[in-house]
């Protein structure tokens, strides 16, 4: 009898557990849809009033008179993201090759925790560092050196801080990409008389190219959505930037800076939710394509 009871309670436990697991799984899988739906629900008011294209390409941002043009913010976002990517990409690629092909054990032993810690530093700390080091450097040294008077709070400052934030992230993916390339390939190349560097250039980089592109894509979407660190150093002037030393006002900063007034001006909350939706769609798109390339690449190798 007691044996029967134990069996019942075990299978009961199993069933309860199975259902809780299923509930959690369904919740997690439907999360992207729920987030998109929620943001669309809030921003639909504005979308129906103005239409997507007129909002994205309009340059006027005057919430008080009901004009919401996202163009300056989108352009700022693109400027900052591209600056960050151009700065970070060569460093990441070279370091990844160094760590996977040349580096000795002790270098790896130092660099692993360094990358881990860099990846774990909160964005506020990066922002503080940006204000303490990067902004004064641009304002006082780089500015006078180039003969311009700049405040330092600029696209370039945002780009530098962002570049350092995405380096550990991109580096980890790149190291994976290079480690996944079969060693036979480089061995074959070396045995045919190619130098180490020729092997890297013509075999490893060529073979890993889709993965490298995908890693940069992921880094780019990470940079595109980063908020606080950029907000702290980029200057936040809602004008279309025309150069690296101009202040900018990227989309995430727009959302973070204006949440206070959001509810007191009509349609303002709708506009901010729409910018969150734009971020969501852009980042999701980039991520999806990059992940797809990486998955296809893994299958082929």
């Amino acid at each position: 009898m007691s044996g029967f009871r134990i069996k019942l309670s075990r299978s009961l436990r199993n069933k309860v557990h199975g259902s809780w697991m299923t509930v959690c799984l369904v919740f997690v899988i439907s999360m992207p849809v729920i987030i998109a739906g929620g943001l669309y629900w809030k921003s639909s008011v504005l979308l129906h009033d103005h239409g997507v294209f007129s909002l994205i390409f309009s340059k006027e941002w005057k919430p008080l008179s009901g004009q919401f043009g996202f163009y300056p913010f989108i352009i700022s976002s693109i400027w900052v993201t591209m600056t960050a990517l151009i700065l970070a990409a060569p460093i990441c690629l070279l370091t990844a090759i160094h760590l996977t092909q040349y580096a000795k054990r002790w270098v790896l032993k130092i660099m692993h925790p360094v990358i881990d810690i860099l990846a774990g530093i909160p964005s506020v700390i990066y922002g503080v560092w940006g204000i303490l080091v990067v902004v004064p450097f641009i304002g006082n040294h780089l500015g006078t050196w180039l003969g311009k008077s700049v405040s330092g709070y600029s696209i370039l400052a945002g780009g530098i801080v962002l570049a350092i934030m995405v380096i550990p992230f991109v580096l980890n993916i790149l190291i994976d990409v290079f480690n996944n390339i079969p060693t036979e390939l480089s061995e074959a190349s070396l045995s045919l008389g190619a130098t180490r560097w020729q092997t890297i250039k013509f075999v490893l980089v060529k073979k890993g190219l889709p993965g490298i592109v995908a890693a940069f894509g992921l880094g780019m979407s990470r940079a595109f959505g980063e908020t606080i660190a950029v907000l702290m150093v980029v200057g936040n002037v809602s004008r279309i930037p025309s150069g690296l030393f101009q202040p900018g006002y990227p989309l995430p900063a727009l959302i973070a800076n204006n949440y206070g007034e959001m509810l007191s001006i009509p349609l303002y909350d709708s506009a901010l939710m729409l910018s969150a939706l734009i971020l969501f769609v852009v980042v999701l798109g980039f991520n999806f394509v990059s992940r797809y390339i990486i998955a296809a690449c893994d299958k082929r190798c």
Binding site: I35, L39, S221, V283, N287
Partner: peptide, 17 residues
């Protein structure tokens, strides 16, 4: 894949949501 996509979504979007 879905989890990786969710991981990539910026935290400000979670804040807005």
């Amino acid at each position: 894949l879905i989890l990786d996509l969710l991981w990539g979504i910026p935290s400000i979007v979670y804040g807005a949501f």
